[in-house]
Structures are given as C-alpha cells and as structure tokens.
C-alpha cells in the first residue's frame, strides 16, 4: 500500500518548524562563539607547550573529547545549577555543554594548524623583532586559520548536529519542535521530512560558505 503523502496540514505548522530551525541556528552560533576563543587559547597553549598550563589543557581536552554530549547537556542543565546555586536557562546550559566540548576539538585543530606553519615563518617574524604575541597574531595565526577553514566547518556541522540533542532538556530546537508538531498532526513522515530538509538547507549553505572561503584563500597560499 503506497503511503498517501499529505504536506498540507504540516505546512500550516511551518512557522513552528522554522522557529525551531532558527533556535538551532542561534544555539549553534552561541556554541561556536564560546568554543572559538577557548579553543584558540587552549590550542596555542598546547602548541607552545606553555609551562603549567599545557598539562591542564591536555586534561581539559581529553575530558571533553571523551565525554558523551548528551550526558554533558543533562549534567549542565540538571546538575550544574544545583552545584552553582544558580538557575540556568536551557539555552545557557546547552551552550556550555556543547560549546566546551567543541572548544576541545577546536583546540586540537588549532594546535595542528599552528604546527603546519613552517619554522621559517616564525624565524622571519622573530628576525624582524616581533615579540611572541605579535608573531602569533599577525604572522602565524592568520596563516594557520586559513588552513583550518575546511576542518573548522566540519566542526561547525558537527556542532549543529549535536545541538539537536538539546530537545532532551526541552530547548525548542528543530527536532524538538518536529516532535511536537508530529504528535499534534499525526503526520511524522511529512513532519520529519520537512525538519530534515530545513537542517539540510542550513548545513548545505554553511558548506558552500566554507568552500567559498577555502577557494578564496587557497589562491593566495603558495
């Protein structure tokens, strides 16, 4: 018996699904915004083998890379507020959980990126008389960042996918909203098809931006 597709009812709920998609985008952006500064700092600490801090960074990175995202989300939402004695919104809790985990991945990416820049670049900057921070900021990091673009966007895609776990603590992201719509209209096939298409559209655009950036900077590299 062929399935009788009917999108008309589900389309009435389109605003709700798009609203969910928007929340997914916002949450992902917040996670990335948290992950980037922490990841860059940790990556530099790891690469430069900064005394005292480097071992701490290793523990941090290993901890978050081996943690289960869903456990982190639940822990940040249910356990962290009790320990800190403050209320955390679902948005804040999930941002902390996924953002910190992403920062650990990013730290390793930054470390690898920095390591890929030849020692000649460090030496040339040093020979000009640049102090260490200036060498990093103007010479090494900009070059490393260009090389990191493809893998960074892979990480962004992973973060977007991970944020769909936020529904577990009732954050209204795309999958959570799809669940709610489908229980209301009893049309799971159409609902999740549309939810899937919204996710696909967003990630596809993200990927295209990545390709653009990569191509633009590849022309400059030797």
């Amino acid at each position: 018996m062929p399935y009788d597709w009917n999108f008309s009812i589900v389309l009435q709920y389109m605003p709700q699904l798009l609203w969910g998609g928007l929340h997914t985008v916002l949450l992902s952006a917040a996670c990335i915004a948290l992950a980037v500064p922490i990841g860059v700092v940790l990556g530099v600490i790891r690469h430069q083998r900064v005394r005292f801090l480097a071992p701490i960074a290793v523990v941090y990175i290993d901890f978050f890379r081996t943690s289960v995202a869903l456990v982190l989300i639940c822990w940040c939402y249910y356990a962290l507020p009790i320990l800190l004695g403050v209320n955390l919104s679902t948005f804040t809790a999930v941002t902390i959980a996924i953002g910190l985990q992403a920062s650990a991945y990013l730290a390793e990416l930054v470390r690898a990126g920095l390591g890929s820049i030849s020692t000649g670049q460090w030496e040339a900057a040093r020979a000009l008389g640049m102090p260490g921070t200036m060498r990093l900021r103007y010479i090494i990091l900009p070059q490393a960042a260009r090389r990191m673009i493809p893998v960074f966007f892979l990480l962004v895609v992973e973060v977007v996918k991970t944020t769909t776990l936020a529904g577990i603590v009732t954050y209204p992201e795309i999958v959570y909203e799809a669940f709610r719509v489908s229980t209301e209209v009893y049309r799971p096939v159409e609902t999740f098809t549309i939810a899937g298409l919204i996710c696909f559209a967003f990630l596809f655009v993200t990927g295209r931006i990545a390709m653009r950036l990569e191509r633009r900077y590849a022309a400059v590299e030797r």
Binding site: S118, G120, Q121, E123, A124, A125, A127, I139, P142, Q143, R146, Y217, V220, E221, R222
Partner: peptide, 10 residues
C-alpha cells in the same frame, strides 16, 4: 635575509 626568503604568504 634568509636562504628560503620566508616572506609572509598571506
């Protein structure tokens, strides 16, 4: 001035 130039490519 280095043997390998070491210009900043970016």
């Amino acid at each position: 001035v280095f043997q390998q130039f070491n210009l900043f490519p970016h």
